[in-house]
Nucleic acid binder design. Structure first.
Lengths: 144, 144
DNA sequence: TTACATGTAACTATCATAGTTACAATTGTA
DNA sequence: TACAATTGTAACTATGATAGTTACATGTAA
């Protein structure tokens, strides 16, 4: 199991929009940096658009950032690309046997523990912004 | 995306082994409580055995606990059933373009953030034992 | 009108999951 | 020793998500 790379691709896109904000970022250009297909990019950009993180318009070349990256957390991106649903990071087997004391209570018993673990992970994502990401990229670049 | 229900099934099995420690827990009995196939149970029990959480022997009916449940954390079970690999909760797209400043740094930049989020989730799993689970089940039972 | 982008449907290949059948290997007991 | 019951495992199926791809309708600017 692994959370979809849509998340890392979306971060890549947003970081590139910032770093290349002077240029025109078409889906083909973005796909070239990510090394994937322009359609994959358009699908993810579409999700970022729905989340009001970018602006794109049919027929007009280029995607642009809507917000300052210091105002966008990794959690915002994570929700935008819909990689994990609320309370559903862990799946619980359904239809355990209600005739059994364990079977009839296991779901309600386990759920809060799983949710707590998911929330802890998501809190970390909330604690970092895309500005942090871009800064780290710039710092790594300057080391050469 | 969702983490395999092998994890919740494994917790179910271990809790049931504790609650029914007087009885003989065959794969068929366990499967009856979980409401699945005995082979599915045997596969998961095999993983728990490798992790030294249970004892089972070919030909001999019944699986038994090896440890006190107060000494087994949810993290131990999570690792035993191999639902998420180390550092791989989030996947990162491979082969980004090295000609691009974002492409050549994105992987190394993102990874520590992803690992931090995964570790936070796993820390929560480490903070709870199977004894907590069994206690919660017993408490819920007593409410009737 | 042309050229170029975006948006999206439809399809493919690949993989993990969960379940299932079948059967060999192991053990206790009549 | 033979038998019945159980575990261990290989092999297979169905399902669903992912990532990629082709094709094309739609929209915009020059």
């Amino acid at each position: 199991m692994s959370i979809s790379s849509r998340f890392s691709v979306a971060i890549h896109i947003l970081a590139l929009l910032e770093i290349n904000k002077e240029g025109v970022c078409t889906s083909e250009y973005l796909a070239g940096s990510i090394n994937t297909n322009p359609v994959v990019v358009r699908k993810i950009v579409g999700m970022l658009k729905k989340a009001n993180l970018v602006e794109v318009r049919p027929g007009i070349a280029g995607t642009e950032l809507v917000k300052e990256l210091s105002e966008v957390t990794l959690f915002d991106v994570y929700k935008a690309v819909n990689v994990v649903n609320e309370k559903e990071l862990f799946s619980i087997h359904d239809n355990p046997n209600p005739e059994c004391p364990v079977g009839r209570n296991i779901q309600d018993t386990i759920e809060p523990f799983f949710i707590a673990a998911q929330v802890a992970m998501e809190e970390v994502l909330k604690s970092h912004t895309l500005k942090n990401i871009v800064q780290d990229i710039v710092t790594k670049e300057e080391m050469y």
